[in-house]
Design a protein around this nucleic acid. Structure first.
Lengths: 206, 206
DNA sequence: CGGGTTATTGAATGATATCAACTTACGTGG
DNA sequence: CCACGTAAGTTGATATCATTCAATAACCCG
């Protein structure tokens, strides 16, 4: 399968919402944000992609969202025709793609659940636990996790404002649940407490 | 492919979150709600399914959400092993499944966007337009559309409360945007206005 | 070290949840 | 077929929490 390498600087776009979809992308290193620009000008981030993740597996002839580098990012790009030509000949491969999209679907459902919590603290706690769990596949436990995205990215992902995100970071710090190092380093000190917040009932009987 | 027919009364479950996933389902008539029960007891509806829709195409060995009949529903049920045996032998069929899951993924993204609007009126306007568009495939224009689900379902779908949903219905009625007949009939009288609400900027410069 | 971007903090506003009372719709059985 | 009873929906008052606007502080790149 033919592919080409591509390097992106922060803020550079892989593609824009509405572009003709001619390629599928595989992230080799770095970090991407996928986002939709709403007609009202707001931005909804629908996911982040990191090394090993495929981008644009969905059907449709145009991209439904934009993909932009958060930090310096390398990716491999494959013409979509070649990609699906291989897939059509190799049911095994197609099945793997199928499962990847299924995983994306589950992730989207999780995002719905996280957003709809309607309590900023709950959403944030769930987000931090999720980010750490995803990173834990690579690193050792109880270590600092990299948070490459900006506060505004977290906000646009969870449906909050960057101020609220900032306030909750501060609040979690004060309560000793997390430790923050610089802008992009975070370490969870009290996962249990975060899990309780993430799971707590809005109408609490305490 | 072997399949069996199944009839469900309102409130009856097709399956529960956490059950072993042994079957795939195809809705023949009626209406289903798919929902996740959160650890805090709240319910997040992640989608509704109607005639022609497949349920449980996702990967994974257990159901990640529950499926329950809203109104009397008929469906065809296929053992998952048989289903994927056929799919593995028939790349054409597998590709169609792939595209269906992709559509589900897009729908989930749309839901994220709708919820994250964070303005109840915007979410509701988008919801009504979406419901009508989906139903319009079958019926003539400017007609009453069936809204089989309850107010509480809409609320749990959009991340609101049933009271808020109710208030907005009333409000849209008063403004002449919609007409409501009984509990389950609705007709959009002013799509343009609804679209403007759905698309309006929170920080409006008017 | 300096400039610009990003993040934090504060005060006030406003939208939606909550709690509670009341009304309507609808299916069931008489 | 009508009356009734229950579940669903509506409406109102209040409280809460996130947003908004604004000012300051920290970070990071050259």
């Amino acid at each position: 399968m033919p592919w080409s390498r591509r390097k992106l600087a922060p803020r550079q776009h892989v593609f824009l919402q509405g572009d003709d979809k001619n390629h599928v992308h595989l992230v080799k290193s770095g970090y991407l944000r996928l986002y939709a620009l709403l007609s009202n000008g707001r931005r909804q981030i629908i996911g982040f992609k990191t090394a090993g993740d495929f981008v644009a597996l969905e059907s449709g002839s145009t991209y439904r969202y934009s993909a932009q580098a958060v930090s310096a990012t390398e990716l491999h790009t494959v013409p979509i025709s070649a990609f699906f030509a291989v897939a059509a000949d190799d049911p095994q491969f197609l099945l793997r793609l199928y499962n990847m999209v299924c995983d994306n679907l589950s992730a989207a459902h999780d995002l719905v659940v996280t957003i709809a919590k309607r309590d900023a603290e709950e959403s944030m706690a769930a987000f931090l636990l999720d980010i750490e769990a995803r990173a834990l596949g690579r690193k050792g436990k109880s270590d600092f996790v990299s948070l490459p995205m900006l506060r505004g990215d977290v906000a646009d992902y969870l449906g909050l404002t960057s101020e609220t995100v900032s306030r909750i970071f501060t609040n979690f710090k004060k309560r000793g649940y997390i430790e923050v190092r610089g802008r992009h380093g975070i370490r969870l000190l009290n996962r249990r407490a975060l899990r309780e917040i993430s799971d707590r009932n809005a109408r609490d009987f305490s």
